[in-house]
Structures are given as C-alpha cells and as structure tokens.
Nucleic acid binder design. Structure first.
Lengths: 153, 153
DNA sequence: TATTGTTATACTCTATAACTATA
DNA sequence: TATAGTTATAGAGTATAACAATA
C-alpha cells in the first residue's frame, strides 16, 4: 500500500500545474535514464554533450551551453571529463581561434552507440503509459515549449 | 544574433529525444518560476510544499516526499524552513503518533495566494507558444507520464 | 519487523563573478 | 567593446545510510 499512500494528494490544486507535472516527469525520467547510463559512466548531461559531439556539427562550447540551457562554465567541466576519457576532443576552429569545435573520437562514437540504446530504453520505460501517437504529440508540444523564444525581460 | 547561434544544433539526433526536450522545458520553466517566486522568498520546491499544506488534506511528510518525488530527508529541510517562517506547522496525527500533518498557517495561506499568482504568471510565460487546447493536451499527457506506476526493478 | 521522521554526509547541479585571449 | 573559454566559489538539488520513536 506504500505506493498508493500519496494518491489522495492528486486532488490538490498543485496537481493541475503543468510546471509541477513537468518537474515530476523529468525527475522520474532522469532517474531512470541515469540508472541505465550509469554502467557506461555517463549521466544525462554528459550523454547530451557526447550526443552533440557525435552529430558531426562540431558545436562550440557556447553553442552547447545555449542548446542545453547550461552556463558556459558548466560545459567546461563536462567537456573536460569527456576529453580526459578520450571520448571527445577540442578541435581548433580555423575561423575563430577563441572557439573550440567539440567532436567525438572513435571511442566516443562507440560509447554513444551503447548510450543511445540505453537512452531509448529509458525513454520507452518513461513513456510506457503513452501510445505511439501520443508520444509524437508530446514530443511536438515539448519541442515548442523547450525552444520558445525567451520573453524580453 | 546570439539568440540564434545554436539553432543549427536542432538537426542533431538529441533534439528528437523526449527526455531531452522535457529536461530543457523544465529547466527554462523552473528558471522563470524561481524568478517570479523569488520576491516572496520561495522557490519551486518550497512553493510546492506550501501549496500542498494549503490543500486542507493535511499531508504527512512521507506523502509529500512521495508526491513530489523527493527523499524524506529533503522534505525535513523544506518543512523546517517553512515552519521557521511560521508559514506551516507540524500538527500531531491522532491516528499515528509518528506522523506529522503539515498544515498551512494563516500567514501561509496569505503567502500562497500571492505565490499562486506568480506561478500562474510563470506558467503562462512558459506556455506562451501553445493554444489553450494544446495546454490541456500537454497537461494530460504529462500527468500520465508523471504518475505512471514505476516498472518493477 | 517495518515505517515516520530525523541527522549526517557526499555528490551533482545551478548561478555568479572575474579573468584571458581573441575578435 | 564584445565574445569564447576558463577558473573559482557558493548555494540548491539529489542520493544514501544510520538512528530514535512508534506501529
């Protein structure tokens, strides 16, 4: 009965707030994903950086920070760790010597393949309650919310 | 042009992963909400506890932890702070002397009214890209994901 | 024996400011 | 003057383990 002991709180007003629901969904989903990525010594954040480094877009750290909604200083630490493990490298950008292009090594690509499988498993765990059509709907709604232009101050 | 500098990363595979989109949406939304709740000296987590304390359901700390997907030890600290500020009290549960019923004081209810307005403003900022119908859709999809029964191990 | 709340501890994530080298 | 990356620091969030009181 432990599992159901908080179910009566669903009648509270908070349970209708989308922010709260998104926070809880993300919290549950991240826990699943971290558990499945753990054996690869990745977490959701380092996985995200590795995934973008594998995209052949050669993102700069600034682009990573903006896309992942992190501070630039956080990206430094994430790239440091992946570079130390020889999964990505900081390549010089010939057009701007201030910038690093973050690109995956062969080992990085190999690990990403396994990590992608883990991420997909975590996603299907997290979305087990939704039909394929509903997953598409959710993806499109979230995409618009996630990348909505920030309102001016 | 700074705002658009990472837009080319949308073509990366990561941009289609629902977990990633949910994490980014939550991250942006939480930042908005914390900014609007800041003047009331609340954050999203303490706001959530206050909201449930205002529900007249008298939740126990165990129920709060389960509903908010927090560890019980985190709830201790959140309730401590709200109690110190005389916004909630720990009432004895006559049916189980181990449990505290967390209930809002008059001051807690008064602050919650203001906080609810801030939370609603944050939500409408965060969901500006969606129509009313789409907001309902998103709420229902998230609700099912957020409270899906955890798969067995 | 199991559960509620508590304390303690460690680690991860978030946010800010200051600095450097380039532009 | 502004931007990319870096360093340092502090505070918020997450996760575990152990304990006392109670069931």
């Amino acid at each position: 009965m432990t599992d159901a002991s908080s179910s009566r709180l669903h009648s509270a007003a908070l349970a209708d707030e989308i922010e709260f629901l998104a926070a809880r969904a993300r919290s549950v989903g991240t826990a699943h994903a971290n558990a499945l990525l753990g054996p690869l010594e990745l977490r959701v954040r380092s996985y995200a950086v590795l995934a973008l480094a594998c995209s052949d877009l050669g993102p700069s750290q600034r682009e990573l920070a903006e896309f992942l909604n992190l501070d630039a200083s956080q990206v430094v630490a994430l790239v440091d760790e992946l570079e130390r493990r020889s999964l990505v490298s900081r390549d010089p950008d010939p057009r701007d010597r201030r910038s690093n292009a973050i690109v995956a090594t062969a080992a990085g690509h190999a690990l990403y393949e396994k990590a992608l499988a883990a991420a997909r498993a975590a996603e299907s765990q997290a979305l087990a309650a939704l039909s394929p059509d509903e997953r598409v709907q959710l993806r499109e709604l979230l995409r618009r919310v996630a990348f909505e232009p920030t309102p001016q101050a």
